[in-house]
Design a protein around this nucleic acid. Sequence first.
RNA 1: CGGGGUGUAGCACAGUCCGGUUAGCGCGCCAGCUUCGGGAGUUGGAGGUCGAAGGUUCGAAUCCUUUCACCCCGACCA
Length: 494
Amino acid sequence: MAKELKDLANREDSYSQWYNDLVVKAGLAEYSAVRGCMVIKPYGYALWENMRDALDGMFKATGHENAYFPLFIPKSFFSREASHVEGFAKECAVVTHYRLMNDPEGNGVVVDPDARLEEELIVRPTSETIIWNTYKGWIQSYRDLPILVNQWANVVRWEMRTRLFLRTAEFLWQEGHTAHETRQEAVEETARMIGVYRDFAEKWMGVPVVVGHKTANERFAGAEDTMTIEALMQDGKALQSGTSHFLGQNFARAFDVQFTNRENALDYVWATSWGVSTRLIGALIMAHSDNNGLVLPPKLAPLHVVLIPIYKGDEEYASAVARLRELADELRARGLKVKIDDRDNVRSGFKFAEYELKGVPVRLALGPRDMAAGTIELARRDTLTKEVVPQEGLAERVASLMDEIQAAIFERALAYRDDHITRVETWDEFVRTLDEKGGFISAHWDGTTETELAIKEATKATIRCIPLDAEDEEGRCVLTGNPSKRRVLFARSY
RNA sequence: CGGGGUGUAGCACAGUCCGGUUAGCGCGCCAGCUUCGGGAGUUGGAGGUCGAAGGUUCGAAUCCUUUCACCCCGACCA
């Protein structure tokens, strides 16, 4: 399998094919019978559960609670906020009927034409509308605020073209929806949650991100401001990995959510929404994987350590497995997730390759030589290095190695990312860098949507964000030469 | 929705142009033996309405008509 991946990696135009093969062969996910929809297999789902648990803990720690809202949204709700409809209208699945019947012609089952819904239901592409319709009933006074609610859910966006994890017709995500008394408080919440996402991406996933604001053109439909974390994939394309929106009073006005403030006056509620999805798994894969397969960060890996017996004959097999069981218990006692692969119908070399493909951080192999010497072979997935170490003190060594690997893969991704932020001054440089090197391009932009679209038209590069840490710097727009006050980050993206 | 392509065993494919024994290869699967410190070797075996429907023909995976599905490239997008 790794051999197949290598062959693919050697072909210049096939990164996406390589990615797709990796996702499938590593057992994370595959396409389903339903066009554009993905089956997340147990290994992929275990990864998602780990991500979900970590994020959920971070949400709770920032005062949020979970709730659940309906999958279906009445069409009329949708049309309440003008730019919101416009943004999502083209990709909505719509429920028009509620009943099937036996085909009078005898051709199986057909939609019962008499069962047409009076009002069509939209399968949620995001839940702002149904949630704000609900919040209207929850909020009367400033004493009812803030509302800090998150929901874990699936949403449907009927995309034309799909890619496993990155863009599927249905995907899993979380969406936080908060309501606040003041603009200031909502703006702070927006920034706080993008900070949570940055911490999660960097500390848990080991994926460095740039935090910034979206341009007006790239903003969420219905938001006043959209903050984003942008990650860089190993093929030089950017991936929007999480967003946090300051919604102003747009949804409160659309759904008439007013409250009595401290001055006994009626005011509209201030809102935010923020979300990350199973797309993060795509980010994880494309940020760290190599030609041998996945490289998973220990803090999220479904399995930390795999133990493999090396043997000739039943006797060696039995003694190696018995010793591995003892070692596995010691590792588990350190909180590590451990598996002994004692299958005797595949050879050890096959197992080595298989766990590399799956990205298991550490592999331990125990053979007759080790049994005699009291040693064991320890292999690191991230560096593909092996060393023979004493069995004595193994658990402690492996436990600390997890931290080392977690740090190492972040550092490696960070070095790659930093090496792929290129400052350019001229249009010529801009185009050449984009084609030859890829990655983020830090350049001046005159601040107009017109220029932004012209650049996209010419190069397919978009403004990923206006970075939070962008310094004030007088310059000239890379396309128009008009004055600019700071640099923005451009990239081709997923 | 535009442009291209593909449907043959669980997977990946050859055969189709130019119709002709019982439809083939590799991987995988099942059984046996030998192996086992980096993706094993060998022997035997199972598995197909050749996407579907109709037509031409003595004879169709192959030719004709219709139809369905999927993939890739664009537009759209977390």
